[in-house]
Amino acid sequence: MMRCKQARRLFSAHLDGELAAGQEEQFRAHLVTCPECKTLLEKVSGTIAALRDLPEQALSKEERGQIHRSWRSKWKDLSRGAQPASRGLARTATALGAAMILGAAAVISLSVLHHPQEVGENAASTEAAAESDTGSDRSKTYTGHQDLSTSLTLGERLLPQVVSSTRAVGAADMEGYGADYAQKQSFYSAVWQHSAEKARPDAAPVYDLEALGKLQAQCAEDMVEAAESLGEDASVLRNALNSVLAASADQLPLLPCWAEKVVFEGKAAWIISLSGPQPDVSQGAGTGTPQGAEQPVEGGEGLVGSKEILPALPRYLFVVNALDFQILFR
């Protein structure tokens, strides 16, 4: 004999006609003997009908106007900082289904790598930076030479990439992990390279730690938002990022550039890759420490992206258990 609790679990299935014949029979038999369930079922049925009858809410002219003003204003902000050659909001002409790489969808105001003597030398680029929306300290904004790499750091905003998958990986796979390669290279050319090039041969590059800290926070925030838009639990990635950033806190502020949700040795985990200064990955791979721009370069020309050099890339790569935020691999 069916009990009330069992019968109530079957209300929707009954109303949607999804009960198997035997179950339907038992369900109906219960209703005959249970007026409470019968009444509740009638109410549920009436409720569903009332829900289907609810009118769609139409936006008023004013509400619609507000929605359009708001995105247009954001569009204006974003477009203002884009380089003429990259007016399109996706600088890499991202096709549907392609991995996201560099989005010129926003403006970077933080030229993180610069030398103090360069400040104030060029009024035009100061203005361009002042129009940006990240609120960074203008006095620290690079305003010097108009060479290509500088223009790029002023005109783009780096957006980290987040991938949600159920791919099963193990520690052995991590040694040859290269999914973050393109992203690391993009971050390197936009953030670290300029400083390395500007450094005197006998001195270490100069970094603006405050600006890097802000960029690190922004990248982490973008990553969390991206995870949310993929339907992932944003708080899990946030906590994983916190673990990783805390573990790397004794180094320069490294930048989260890539995160991939995987199943690591049977458990949900996030692979998080941080971008840091390193030998120019486009010239081959190095084994640099965070301050290791001067480290010897291994690999060589013509090996860009090849499997041979991937294992040798500097590993600011972490796998974090998504349940208790233990770092499983680094």
């Binding site: 936006l59 509400e63 507000q66 929605i67 708001s70 995105w71 954001k74 569009w75 974003l78 909001l89 996706a90 991202t94 549907l96 996201m100 989005g103 969808a105 926003a106 957006l159 990439q161 987040v162 938002e225 991206a226 838009s229 993929l230």
Partner: peptide
């Protein structure tokens, strides 16, 4: 609704 479309502007390339 406003926030969604502003967010969309920033994130649509990730679709």
């Amino acid at each position: 609704c406003q926030e969604t479309f502003v967010l969309l502007l920033r994130k649509l390339h990730t679709f």
